[in-house]
Amino acid sequence: MAEKFHTELDNLKCETVEMAHFGRAMLRDAVDGLIRQDKVLAESVVARKEEIHIMEVRLEEHCYQLIALNQPMAKDMRVIACTLKVITASLRIGRYGKVIANIVKEVADNPHIANLMSIPHMAELVIEMIDDAIQAYETDNLRLIDAFSSRDDTIDALRHSIFRQGITYMMEDPRTISRCTHYIMVARYLERCADHACKIAENVQYMETGERVEIH
């Protein structure tokens, strides 16, 4: 029976990685839609919200079932605890993708201000963090998340910089207020996505070592 349980646990992890990639793709496509002013791509992101929600419910139920039927202990227990957090973080990342995609629909008809400021660069860094967090979870590789604390600091600094730049443009020309507010919100959502990547990293650390760490 233990073998069957461990096979199921492996399957759960594989399916959770798929969900994490799905959420990450929603964010990636939303950012690409924003950069390219592509409303169709943005629409496709919004349309995926039901699918990721179904994934969340199904995978969470799978976790609860494994707990109820197998009473996992030690690393098995930690894998399931971590998986539940990865599921939640992936859903949130996907949802931020959806929210950014909705903004694309608002801003796509007029040219960008200041080439979207640092948003494309910030998005690259956030998505790299998400990729590393997912891979660390998938391959039990803690080295990928070693520098998450300083990477998260960079993301916070970029958000602050976009905020200040946005305020400057708004003061110069009130007609940019709506658009710059959207940029500031996008930067905020990207920063939250990086926080979710950090949450995944914290839980991968717990899954692997049993130690709780906090990544600021």
Partner: peptide
Amino acid sequence: FEHPTEELTENYITGR
């Protein structure tokens, strides 16, 4: 049961 030190303990309590 949450984080045994020895690998042998880990393998036993996880049913390996």
